[in-house]
Simulated scan of single mutants.
Amino acid sequence: MRRRGHGEVTASGLPEGFMENLPATGSDDDLIRAMDADLLLAAMDALGTQTREALLLRYREGCSVKDIAEALGISVSAAKVRLSRGLDRLRELFDAAAKEAAA
């Protein structure tokens, strides 16, 4: 599978109060809520634009997977994959940061 290049994403693109507006609807949401806001901003910077958009639509705007797929012009299954891979990548980044902090 070929991947398209991703543009650089900056934390300044996130709206003010990003963490306060996240809905709490499940275990992945709980994971995101528990994260430090500064670390989350840095982790979001490390994601590609497409992944970041999907995560923001889901966790900032509260969109359903179907709504995300329609907004991004992709299939529902592609939206699910994008969200899942994005959350996996965030977990990896936070695990690395936790190990670094413990060292």
Rank of each mutant, 00 (worst) to 15 (best):
residue 56 L to R: 09
residue 69 A to T: 04
residue 36 D to H: 12
residue 43 A to I: 00
residue 62 G to D: 02
residue 48 G to E: 06
residue 36 D to W: 01
residue 22 L to A: 02
residue 26 G to R: 13
residue 31 L to S: 09
residue 42 A to S: 14
residue 68 I to N: 00
residue 47 L to D: 05
residue 34 A to I: 01
residue 56 L to C: 14
residue 22 L to T: 06
residue 58 R to T: 00
residue 21 N to W: 03
residue 50 Q to W: 07
residue 35 M to E: 09
residue 29 D to V: 01
residue 43 A to V: 02
residue 45 D to N: 14
residue 68 I to V: 02
residue 66 K to H: 06
residue 25 T to V: 15
residue 22 L to M: 12
residue 61 E to W: 03
residue 32 I to N: 05
residue 27 S to T: 10
residue 68 I to L: 03
residue 34 A to E: 15
residue 64 S to T: 15
residue 27 S to E: 15
residue 27 S to D: 13
residue 51 T to S: 11
residue 26 G to Y: 02
residue 34 A to G: 15
residue 24 A to L: 14
residue 70 E to N: 08
residue 64 S to G: 05
residue 26 G to I: 04
residue 70 E to C: 05
residue 62 G to F: 03
residue 29 D to S: 15
residue 26 G to W: 06
residue 24 A to Q: 13
residue 33 R to W: 12
residue 60 R to Q: 11
residue 52 R to F: 00
residue 54 A to F: 03
residue 39 L to K: 11
residue 68 I to G: 03
residue 63 C to V: 02
residue 55 L to Q: 09
residue 68 I to C: 11
residue 50 Q to E: 11
residue 65 V to W: 04
residue 33 R to V: 03
residue 39 L to Q: 13
residue 40 L to Y: 03
residue 49 T to L: 10
residue 63 C to R: 15
residue 59 Y to T: 05
residue 64 S to D: 05
residue 53 E to R: 15
residue 57 L to T: 01
residue 50 Q to C: 01
residue 61 E to H: 11
residue 55 L to M: 14
residue 58 R to H: 00
residue 56 L to N: 03
residue 30 D to W: 04
residue 55 L to W: 05
residue 57 L to N: 08
residue 38 D to Q: 11
residue 51 T to C: 03
residue 21 N to K: 09
residue 54 A to P: 10
residue 48 G to A: 05
residue 46 A to T: 07
residue 55 L to N: 01
residue 48 G to M: 01
residue 40 L to W: 04
residue 42 A to N: 12
residue 46 A to P: 08
residue 23 P to K: 12
residue 53 E to M: 06
residue 36 D to L: 03
residue 21 N to G: 08
residue 38 D to K: 11
residue 32 I to T: 11
residue 27 S to K: 13
residue 50 Q to P: 07
residue 67 D to H: 00
residue 43 A to K: 06
residue 31 L to E: 14
residue 50 Q to I: 07
residue 56 L to A: 05
residue 60 R to P: 02
residue 64 S to K: 06
residue 70 E to Q: 11
residue 60 R to Y: 10
residue 26 G to D: 15
residue 61 E to K: 08
residue 34 A to D: 15
residue 60 R to H: 12
residue 23 P to C: 05
residue 38 D to P: 02
residue 37 A to Y: 00
residue 51 T to K: 00
residue 33 R to G: 06
residue 51 T to Q: 10
residue 31 L to F: 15
residue 30 D to R: 13
residue 28 D to T: 07
residue 64 S to Q: 07
residue 25 T to A: 12
residue 63 C to A: 12
residue 29 D to I: 05
residue 57 L to I: 04
residue 28 D to G: 13
residue 52 R to N: 08
residue 57 L to F: 11
residue 34 A to M: 12
residue 33 R to N: 14
residue 59 Y to C: 06
residue 32 I to G: 01
residue 51 T to E: 14
residue 28 D to Y: 10
residue 45 D to A: 13
residue 28 D to S: 14
residue 32 I to S: 03
residue 23 P to V: 06
residue 41 L to Q: 10
residue 53 E to P: 00
residue 42 A to T: 11
residue 51 T to W: 01
residue 42 A to D: 08
residue 25 T to Q: 15
residue 23 P to Y: 04
residue 57 L to C: 13
residue 64 S to H: 00
residue 68 I to K: 09
residue 66 K to G: 01
residue 43 A to L: 06
residue 33 R to A: 07
residue 46 A to Y: 00
residue 32 I to H: 01
